[in-house]
Nucleic acid binder design. Structure first.
Length: 289
DNA sequence: GTCCAGGGAATCA
DNA sequence: TGATTCCATGGA
């Protein structure tokens, strides 16, 4: 397949480091020159940035690279407006947004996001990325570009006959059975992902996600926020978010004694329907800065 | 050896 | 509902 190129000039709220290092995705890798190479659907791209100029080049499956990029990178959304609203809340938001000003929330495939965040449970990012790479290499489709092989994220169909033992051998640990059961549930349409995408009621979608094996409150919220479901009102709470919310607002001596309910309530009051975006700026800021 | 990582599920009060 | 404990694995 032929290499394509697309250039985005004068990009606002777009920084490749912020986008790929803020914790929403696991399949983009930094290159020696500072660019990032990654894969989504059947697209393999390398993305480099010079100030406000973004250069995309690589393999695009359906031929329309511009359309694919616009969708995946959420280019139709006005992030300036979102940041303006959040900045007015307090000094913490202003600082965290200044740090992560180039974050955009990717439109990631729902199925891939479900499996990826089941793998993320009680795990660290390098290891999560390794597991997803091995899973893709073994069960996904190979795409060659620049004399290198890349692998698509395997579909539910492609994982249909994989056993718990095979997952265990990929290094999944105790998450093996969860992946097995959730894949089975989705293949048997106990949860219909296409119907889920059509449902505008976030609470209903969340409740359905919670029936999947390995999907608890935090993973469900990550799926709602980081996939094409795109619900910005959710507020995923992990150890980092609990830490930063306690340090900034709650100020208890022992952060492990701060309840999720307390954090959830505070997040809704302060950030409302932009809680998910606020969470992302705070998470990235606290973890990296 | 110990602790921790973008938690979830089972168990018990 | 709320709190505890266990769950593989790999790196610091």
């Amino acid at each position: 397949m032929e290499e394509q190129k697309y250039v985005l000039e004068n990009a606002k709220s777009f920084n490749i480091r912020d986008i790929f290092e803020c914790g929403q995705c696991f399949r983009w890798n930094k290159q020696e020159d500072g660019s990032y190479t990654g894969i989504w659907k059947e697209n393999v791209l390398n993305i480099s940035q010079e100030n406000h100029k973004i250069i995309f080049k690589g393999i695009c499956q359906n031929g329309d690279i511009e359309k694919e990029i616009k969708e995946y990178f959420d280019l139709e959304r006005n992030y300036e407006e979102i940041k303006d609203k959040l900045e007015k809340i307090d000094e913490n938001m202003k600082l965290s947004i200044k740090y992560g000003e180039g974050i955009r929330i990717l439109n990631q495939d729902l199925w891939e996001t479900i499996i990826s965040f089941i793998i993320s449970a009680n795990n660290n990012i390098p290891r999560i990325k390794g597991i997803i790479e091995r899973l893709s290499k073994k069960y996904g489709k190979e795409i060659k570009w620049n004399n290198e092989s890349y692998y698509t994220f395997p579909t539910a169909e492609e994982l249909k006959n994989v056993t718990v033992e095979e997952y265990r051998n990929l290094g999944l640990g105790f998450r093996d059975i969860r992946l097995y059961e959730t894949t089975k549930m989705i293949n048997e349409k106990q949860i219909d992902l296409e119907k889920l995408k059509q449902n505008p009621n976030t609470q209903e979608v969340r409740d359905k996600l919670l029936t999947l094996s390995g999907v608890g409150p935090k993973v469900a919220d990550c799926i709602l926020l980081f996939s094409t479901l795109k619900r910005f009102e959710v507020f995923p709470i992990d150890v980092w978010v609990r830490r930063v919310m306690n340090e900034l607002y709650i100020k208890k001596e022992d952060e492990t004694k701060v309840s999720k309910k307390e954090i959830e309530k505070l997040a809704q009051e302060k950030f409302g329907n932009l809680a998910g975006m606020a969470q992302q700026y705070l998470f990235y800021w606290r973890r990296e800065a």
